[in-house]
C-alpha cells in the first residue's frame, strides 16, 4: 500500500474524537483502582477501630495530607507524561515539597522528644508491615494506571511508568491511612514513603516493557 492510499484510508469518514480523553481515562483508572483497593482493604486489613476519634486529631489530617499532595502531583505528572510533547514542568519541582514538609515535621518532633522515645517514634508498632501493606493496596491502582497509559501515548516510558507507580503508591497510602494506627511524623516520613516507593520503582522498571506502542 502506498502512503497516499494509507492516508486515504485513515482519513475516510474519521470517527470524531471528543476532547478530554487523557483525563477521562486516568479518572476511570483511579475509580477502578479505588474499588480494587477497597476490596483488598476489607479482605485483609479492615478500617481502624478508633477512626472517629483519630479523625479529631490534627496529626490524622497531616498524615492524610502527605499521600494526598503526592497523589495530586503524581496525577498531574502522569497525565502530562501520557501526552507526546508535554514536559513535566512544575510538577517535577513540586514533587519533593510534601516529602520535605513531613521530614521537617518529623525533625521537629524528634528533637522535642526525650531521647529514649525517639526510636519508638520512628519505628512505631507496625514498621514491618506498613510498606508492604501500602504496596498491596496500591496494586489495583498500578494496574489501572498502566491500563490508562497503554491507551494513551507516553513517549518517556520509564518516567511515565514511575509516575504511574507514584500515583498508585500515593493512592494506596491514602487508603491505608484508614487502617494504620501510627500517628508519628517520623514514622509516616519513613515507612509511608518506602511503601510508596515500591510501586514507583516497579512502575519505572515495567514502563519500558509494558508501555510501548
Amino acid at each position: 500500500m502506498r502512503t497516499d492510499q494509507l492516508i486515504e484510508m485513515l482519513a475516510r469518514e474519521p470517527e470524531p474524537v471528543p476532547p478530554g480523553a487523557v483525563r477521562r481515562r486516568h479518572a476511570a483508572a483511579l475509580g477502578w483502582g479505588l474499588a480494587g483497593s477497597a476490596v483488598l482493604m476489607a479482605l485483609f486489613l479492615g478500617v481502624r477501630d478508633d477512626l472517629a476519634e483519630a479523625s479529631r486529631l490534627p496529626m490524622f489530617w497531616v498524615k492524610l495530607a502527605l499521600p494526598l499532595l503526592l497523589l495530586a502531583l503524581a496525577v498531574a505528572g502522569a497525565a502530562r507524561l501520557s501526552r507526546p510533547g508535554v514536559a513535566l514542568g512544575r510538577v517535577a519541582a513540586g514533587m519533593p515539597l510534601p516529602v520535605l514538609g513531613i521530614w521537617a515535621l518529623a525533625g521537629v518532633a524528634l528533637v522535642a522528644a526525650a531521647p529514649g522515645e525517639r526510636v519508638a517514634m520512628l519505628m512505631g508498632e507496625t514498621w514491618r508491615s506498613c510498606p508492604f501493606n501500602i504496596a498491596m493496596l496500591s496494586a489495583p491502582f498500578l494496574a489501572g494506571a498502566f491500563w490508562a497509559m497503554r491507551g494513551l501515548a507516553p513517549t518517556r516510558l520509564a518516567l511515565a511508568g514511575a509516575f504511574a507507580g507514584l500515583m498508585a503508591g500515593a493512592a494506596g497510602a491514602l487508603v491505608y491511612c484508614l487502617h494504620c494506627p501510627e500517628m508519628s511524623p517520623a514514622f509516616i516520613g519513613t515507612w509511608y514513603l518506602l511503601g510508596i516507593a515500591i510501586p514507583a520503582v516497579a512502575g519505572y522498571l515495567l514502563g519500558p516493557r509494558l508501555l510501548r506502542w
Partner: peptide, 19 residues
C-alpha cells in the same frame, strides 16, 4: 491511533515531533 492524546491547547509541532 493516538490522535485522542492531542490537546488543542498544546503546540501541534511539539506533539507531532514527539511522536
Amino acid at each position: 491511533n493516538q490522535r485522542h492524546t492531542y490537546d488543542a491547547a498544546q503546540p501541534l509541532t511539539a506533539w507531532a515531533h514527539a511522536i
